[in-house]
Nucleic acid binder design. Structure first.
Lengths: 158, 158
DNA sequence: GTTAAAAAGGTCAAGCAAAGTCAATAATAA
DNA sequence: TTATTATTGACTTTGCTTGACCTTTTTAAC
């Protein structure tokens, strides 16, 4: 007893699975036509099955040549990941330790290259000009604040 | 899938990349003919994809031998902008002042929304837990370090 | 030199082509 | 029955395309 929404979901997930980069681009109206439904039903499927919670990001553009892009997130659970990272940071952290964590965030595509550079800049010992051990404590506070801020922030890229 | 505007954008960016000086000169009507569109569409592409906020400057001349020159902003231009901002920050800055500057950076598309959130997080008074006036001085140092770090970083988006 | 025509590029607004939103209704599950 | 999930469509917003008309610059005629 599959609803149209279920069918559309399966169809899209198959496409994504088949694609190499874990992302696809579709045209909303064409897809709606294919499944003989109104275009807005595509939006319904996207928002109920391809939301952030489900591990997807949906981007789109309107107008001529418009499209909907669905990107599967490699990261399982943003919040969990962020908490794990904060635990890793602890109450104080050295510059090297911080850079290591930022490097891993970069590798797991959690942040962009620019964001990594930005974060490292804010944590440099040349910038945090106070004596140890207060410096390492402040570095930990700043780093954790930045990690958590990413939860409020939107998806990578904007 | 791609609109004509997208194709023209790619074409021009390839040309610029291929050129040594990071700048090219085109003739609007010829380009329009090449892509079989009206000349004003070239202007549309220029204003939506090669504006200042995208890191380009467009100059042109009319009349016989007219042309459109597209110049990709150099590092020097970016350094200038960054230095201006750093001057604005000064030796110490309040949280509100910092947020204002970040807001303006965001508006001029110098940074993304995520980057803005990230920067504000690092500068919050809840994070910078030291007494005034040292806190405002440290905030200024961190902010300036982040602004300058953007010079190392690549283009917006990655 | 002046002037007129031609050869560029610029502006703007209308229309078209997507996608988005929201709320009403229908269908299904509990 | 009631609550949740699907479906639909009217209306909105955003982005692309086109064309009519305008301004600036060069060139040629006089």
């Amino acid at each position: 007893m599959s609803s149209i929404s279920d069918l559309i979901e399966k169809y899209l997930k198959n496409l994504i699975e088949a694609s190499q980069q874990g992302q696809i681009e579709i045209q909303r109206n064409l897809l709606a036509e294919k499944f003989r439904c109104v275009p807005s039903q595509i939006n319904y499927v996207l928002s109920t099955r391809f939301s952030l919670v489900h591990g997807f990001v949906v981007e789109s553009r309107r107008g001529g040549g418009g499209f909907v892009r669905i990107v599967k997130l490699t990261m399982d659970d943003k919040v969990n990941k962020a908490c794990q990272l904060c635990d890793l940071v602890g109450d104080d952290i050295s510059q090297g330790g911080a850079e290591g964590i930022i490097g891993r965030m970069r590798e797991s595509k959690m942040i962009t290259g620019r964001e990594a550079v930005l974060m490292k800049a804010a944590l440099s010992r040349d910038v945090l000009r106070i004596a140890l051990p207060a410096r390492d404590q402040m570095r930990a506070l700043i780093l954790k604040a930045m990690i958590l801020s990413l939860l409020q922030a939107g998806q990578r890229g904007e």
